[in-house]
Simulated scan of single mutants.
Amino acid sequence: MEKIAQPQSSFMKLCRKLSPKRKDSAAESQHIKNGDHDKNRHIEAVFAYMDANKDGRISPDELQKSFMTLGEQLSDEEAEAAVRLSDTDGDGMLDFEEFAQLIKGDDKCSEEEKKMELKEAFKMYIAEGEECITPRSLKMMLKKLGESRTTDDCRVMIRAFDLNDDGVLSFDEFALMMR
């Protein structure tokens, strides 16, 4: 069962990586209608990214390749288990509704699970041997995600959440940004 939970957590990480302005705070629950629309738009973007052949469905192979693009490994068995977990029509693929349910179902995870997910996501943004997100490491990760930014753009992004003005993001600053 743990191997199945791993892909779900990774889906949420992927959503957050592709949609860094995603918010889940209770203060924003007043705007549920707009929030749901924005969240669905983000899920649609992730779905479109993973649906490499644009057939409206994500196969275990497409899922696995998407993870590799992001520098994560997903075994054949894990990819198949992730698809099987939410494949309600039994076709061996995830259509948009099944994919959205898989991602939305992850919203119910515990605070400890969310913190672990954040730590894993944070590690993806830091360069080897570093302990924080630098403009250079942010630029490299955004490039892997297909988003081209200059180092100066990345400095501006970091500055928006850099509470101690040291020019980098610590895990705590990253966690605040992701809320």
Rank of each mutant, 00 (worst) to 15 (best):
residue 1 M to E: 06
residue 2 E to T: 12
residue 3 K to P: 07
residue 4 I to C: 06
residue 4 I to Q: 08
residue 5 A to I: 12
residue 8 Q to K: 15
residue 8 Q to E: 10
residue 9 S to Y: 02
residue 12 M to W: 02
residue 12 M to P: 00
residue 15 C to T: 02
residue 17 K to F: 09
residue 18 L to C: 01
residue 19 S to A: 15
residue 20 P to C: 04
residue 21 K to S: 15
residue 24 D to S: 14
residue 24 D to E: 15
residue 28 E to R: 05
residue 30 Q to K: 09
residue 33 K to Q: 15
residue 33 K to G: 04
residue 39 K to E: 10
residue 39 K to F: 15
residue 39 K to R: 14
residue 40 N to M: 11
residue 44 E to P: 00
residue 49 Y to R: 02
residue 49 Y to H: 11
residue 50 M to K: 04
residue 51 D to Y: 00
residue 54 K to G: 03
residue 56 G to E: 08
residue 57 R to E: 07
residue 58 I to K: 06
residue 58 I to E: 01
residue 62 E to K: 00
residue 65 K to V: 03
residue 65 K to C: 00
residue 66 S to E: 01
residue 70 L to V: 08
residue 75 S to M: 10
residue 80 E to Q: 13
residue 81 A to S: 15
residue 82 A to Y: 11
residue 83 V to S: 10
residue 83 V to Q: 07
residue 89 D to P: 13
residue 91 D to K: 11
residue 92 G to Q: 06
residue 95 D to M: 01
residue 97 E to S: 14
residue 98 E to F: 03
residue 101 Q to L: 12
residue 102 L to D: 03
residue 102 L to N: 03
residue 103 I to P: 01
residue 110 S to D: 09
residue 111 E to M: 14
residue 111 E to L: 10
residue 114 K to D: 10
residue 120 E to G: 11
residue 124 M to N: 11
residue 125 Y to W: 14
residue 125 Y to D: 07
residue 126 I to D: 02
residue 126 I to R: 13
residue 128 E to K: 10
residue 129 G to T: 02
residue 130 E to R: 06
residue 131 E to V: 05
residue 131 E to P: 02
residue 132 C to L: 04
residue 133 I to A: 12
residue 134 T to P: 13
residue 134 T to Y: 13
residue 134 T to C: 14
residue 134 T to H: 06
residue 134 T to A: 06
residue 135 P to E: 12
residue 137 S to G: 02
residue 138 L to N: 04
residue 144 K to P: 01
residue 146 G to L: 03
residue 146 G to Y: 06
residue 150 T to D: 00
residue 156 V to H: 11
residue 158 I to Y: 05
residue 158 I to T: 08
residue 159 R to I: 03
residue 159 R to Q: 14
residue 161 F to C: 03
residue 164 N to E: 15
residue 164 N to F: 08
residue 165 D to E: 14
residue 166 D to F: 05
residue 168 V to Y: 07
residue 169 L to H: 07
residue 170 S to F: 04
residue 174 F to S: 05
residue 174 F to L: 12
residue 175 A to R: 09
residue 176 L to H: 11
residue 177 M to D: 05
residue 178 M to L: 10
